[in-house]
Write a protein that binds this DNA or RNA. Structure first.
Lengths: 231, 231
DNA sequence: TGAAAAAACTGATCTAGATCAGTTTTTTCA
DNA sequence: TGAAAAAACTGATCTAGATCAGTTTTTTCA
């Protein structure tokens, strides 16, 4: 049952985007000439589902989410830390549209790379293409895990997942300042805001976490992992 | 809101696997020399989550499902019609393990292609790699849609999705013989067997479908599409 | 071909988590 | 800096769908 441990609804992959290391100097130059650097403020849209996607977006700094929007509901697919690409799924599409939206969680910098240049290089440089394949595989696996957890774990398990994910993969500290509102945390775990509040309180009462204002400290990571596993 | 129509929990992609068209004669020969043809009987495992994955599997005929297994629960990720590849996500992995299981829905034939040969060709042939990227993107989009529907659609909508999917994409007929048990249909829609039974009955009572033994005929596809959309 | 097993079906009950309708605390900004 | 808005929180109620405990029908196979 070892492999089951790997399944969580965490939204951040560990993968480093190393694809650009495989470019020839000319290809590097071609990309440089066909990209633009942009800053996004906290809360700003980085891309919007259904709009034209003339770029692949490389996140240089900050933090963003990728999500699908319905009429009233939305689903967060992934959190994007710096060093990751946004919009890869548009590579295939004939009509160049984004298949999801992205929003900056905090002030962020990104490089917008012309998608046709990106495509051209993929078709010329197999090593580059291969490393894009690696990224897509990694993304798929993460989505599968999240999908599985969303359909089979109870809310406690999912909340535990996200807390562990925030602590281990994003902030890399036991204690961190949560700059997400309860509502955003609810979106991330796929539950209602009220449930997040109640469950965080339960975790606090059970002394699994400490909360002070926006600071959260995980005191019993072991137990939290158990909850994540069996929840 | 046009783009929303595209979202359904259907499990079959329309994509044809054209990647092999881009091989050089030598690469084609290399693949031929490093693959084995195998037959799977209905219900047999094609691959098993967690086991070694020395192959990429090309399904030549039949029909298979790809699913994740938990302790008691499972989640069907995708139905694989002939002409599709199974196990692409193992390409990335250093330790060559399948990340999901696959089972034959009916008697099937498959070609097992050595994964290292597959990797080698990806690293040599950018056009081939590019078409693998296309497949991975397509797969991702489908998973995103299914994920969204599973978390936001009611059961009626999901059942409608699957019926439409079976009729339009797999059997390509209004009337088809359902060789899936209610239990398998439940797995596919992520609901309990009892609910499938009740909802199929409701659809029958509302004259949206006709059922006779294992035969199902969709009589009001229009309404079914509405249910899929708003459900 | 007929007994046993599996699948299909039915109705009753239960429950996780959403929704609703507020109050209290914190943040924002003129 | 203090009024208004937003976020956090609380308790009560509701509901979609699961679970349970069966019965009936169909399939399997000795």
């Amino acid at each position: 049952m070892k492999y089951l441990n790997a399944l969580n609804s965490c939204t951040v992959s560990n993968a480093k985007c190393i694809c650009f290391d495989f470019l020839t100097p000319e290809q590097q130059e071609l990309i440089n000439q066909n990209s633009t650097d942009v800053r996004f403020k906290k809360g700003e849209n980085i891309c919007k589902h259904g709009t034209l996607s003339p770029h692949i977006i490389y996140l240089k700094s900050g933090l963003a989410k990728i999500f699908m929007e319905g009429l009233n509901e939305s689903l967060i697919l992934k959190i994007i830390p710096p060093g990751n690409l946004i919009g890869l799924t548009s590579l295939r599409d004939g009509n160049n549209r984004f298949h999801y939206s992205s929003m900056a969680y905090m002030d962020s910098e990104a490089t917008l790379i012309d998608i046709d240049v990106f495509r051209k290089i993929i078709n010329e440089n197999a090593k580059f293409a291969s490393s894009i394949i690696d990224i897509l595989c990694e993304n798929s696996l993460q989505t599968f895990g999240r999908f599985f957890c969303f359909t089979h774990k109870q809310l406690y398990g999912r909340l535990a997942d996200i807390l562990l994910c925030l602590s281990e993969r994003i902030f890399k500290e036991d204690e961190f300042e949560l700059n997400l509102s309860r509502k955003e945390l609810a979106e991330l775990t796929g539950m209602s805001t009220e449930s997040v509040i109640r469950m965080l309180k339960k975790f606090k009462d059970d002394q699994i976490i400490q909360m002070e204002g926006k600071k959260i400290r995980i005191t019993d990571a072991q137990l939290l992992k158990k909850i994540s596993e069996y929840g």
